[in-house]
């Protein structure tokens, strides 16, 4: 059957399967893999880091730029929670280096 299809149709079919099923499958495998990792970490310790290095840096930058924002206290609490967890636990979900953790200061 496939031999009777033109190359452009086959190419589009392949692209579509890759773009939809391929990416959705990748997302499913990745998120379920991350779930397993989180379960492992929580079996080992009570708390877990909540931000990646990039996301935590963005959060800090925003807090420093908006110190009087109505949500600044909540943001500070989330930032400090992540810093505390990173300093007091040895298993981390995100890819934190020891140097990066040592450089973190609570706000």
């Amino acid at each position: 059957m496939m031999t009777s299809l033109s190359l452009s149709v086959l190419g589009m079919l392949g692209f579509t399967l890759l773009a939809f099923w391929g990416v959705a499958g990748w997302a499913l495998v990745r998120t379920l893999g991350q779930e397993r990792r989180k379960v492992e970490i929580l079996a080992h310790q009570d708390r877990m880091d909540t931000y990646s290095p990039t996301a935590l840096a963005e959060l800090r930058e925003w807090i420093e730029e908006h110190p009087d924002d109505p949500l600044a206290d909540e943001a500070r609490a989330q930032y400090n929670e992540c810093v505390t967890v990173l300093r007091t636990t040895d298993m981390h979900f995100y890819d934190w280096s020891n140097e990066e953790i040592a450089d973190l200061e609570p706000l």
Binding site: L17, F20, V23, A27, K38, T50
Partner: peptide, 23 residues
């Protein structure tokens, strides 16, 4: 508490449900 939002709630949901239309 520790669940992700953007990968599962965004990318997987939109592409996964559209994949069923393709299927």
């Amino acid at each position: 508490e520790y669940d992700d939002v953007p990968l599962g709630g965004g990318v997987f949901t939109a592409l996964g449900e559209s994949s069923i239309g393709i299927l």
